[in-house]
Simulated scan of single mutants.
Amino acid sequence: MTDAVLELRGVSKTFGPFKAVTDMSLSVLKGEIHALIGPNGAGKSTLLNMVAGGLPPSAGEILFAGRSIVGLPPHQIVHAGIARSFQITSIFPKLSVIENVRIALMARQGRCRSLFAPAAGVMQDDALALLEQVHMERDLDRPAGELAAGDRKRLEFAMALAGAPELMLLDEPTAGMSPEERSLVTAIIRKINATRGVTVLFTEHDIDMVFSTAHRITVMHQGSKLTEGEPAAVRANPRVRELYLGEAAHA
């Protein structure tokens, strides 16, 4: 892991007088799982939105695979190799699990005009292979709207993988889940990283999940980077313990 797949250089975002992100620099290395943590309002989701193209930075540069992606619309950023997963899953609830994945595969191939045409058998093998990656092959015919929170998230991961991304952006991937669901989703993230080589940048409030999963951690505070490093170094940082970890720092 020597090459940066994503680089932020002096990135800032303001909303009128409010400074959401200030002079943020960040390197996410190819093949790593990188966590972005901090208190509510630290600027984490704003930063992910800028990388994904949902918000333009007010200043600074964002490079993906060495090329600037500032100003590109979200769909072009997706096609460049960045997938985004939101806190609230974005699936088609009335369609089956495998139909959702087929749609994602068809969209990746530019077959948007036929997305809602009868698609029985279309890309069946590819869709099934993706569902196997997230351990959902037994649920392929279930309506997506009937899935529990953890299962919806796993389906969304399969849909994101349909785009063959090099980088996945995950915003609170285990939010609102039971301990069992969190454990399963965390295992899927590790598997996607290990078996497919997908780089992961994620935000998360579950400190135990962060420190057991991330290769490196960046801590944000009031829109700026407080510190960055491997989990043990971040946990031992006095300012992180004072401002953010609190009781968790001693766990």
Rank of each mutant, 00 (worst) to 15 (best):
V200S: 02
G41N: 10
L184Y: 00
G54Y: 15
S96F: 02
F211D: 06
E180G: 09
V210Y: 05
D151S: 11
R108C: 01
F86S: 07
A149F: 01
L167A: 08
R113P: 02
L130S: 05
F202L: 15
A249T: 11
R182S: 15
L6R: 04
N237L: 04
T199Y: 08
A104N: 14
P56W: 05
T2I: 09
D151C: 00
V51R: 04
K225Q: 12
F86L: 14
L26K: 03
P73H: 07
L140T: 10
E99Q: 14
L245M: 09
V51M: 04
A20M: 12
R102N: 00
T14H: 10
V11H: 04
D125N: 14
F202Q: 03
S183L: 12
D3A: 12
G197R: 13
A149E: 06
D151K: 05
G163V: 04
V21H: 05
S12L: 06
E181N: 07
I77Y: 05
H205Y: 11
R152V: 01
A175I: 04
A4C: 09
D23H: 04
M106N: 03
D23S: 12
P118V: 11
R111A: 10
L147R: 06
A129E: 13
D208N: 13
E132Y: 00
L243V: 12
P39E: 10
G176S: 07
I37D: 01
V70R: 11
H250D: 15
T89R: 01
A83N: 00
E172L: 11
A65P: 00
T22E: 15
S45K: 05
K225V: 15
A232G: 10
E172H: 08
I62G: 05
L184N: 02
V219M: 07
E132K: 15
F202H: 10
I189C: 05
K44D: 10
S58K: 08
G41W: 05
K153H: 06
V234H: 13
R241Y: 02
N193S: 05
A251M: 11
E61N: 07
G197Y: 12
H205N: 14
V134P: 12
E242V: 12
I77V: 15
F116E: 11
M220V: 02
P39G: 03
L140Q: 07
T218L: 01
E32A: 08
S58C: 06
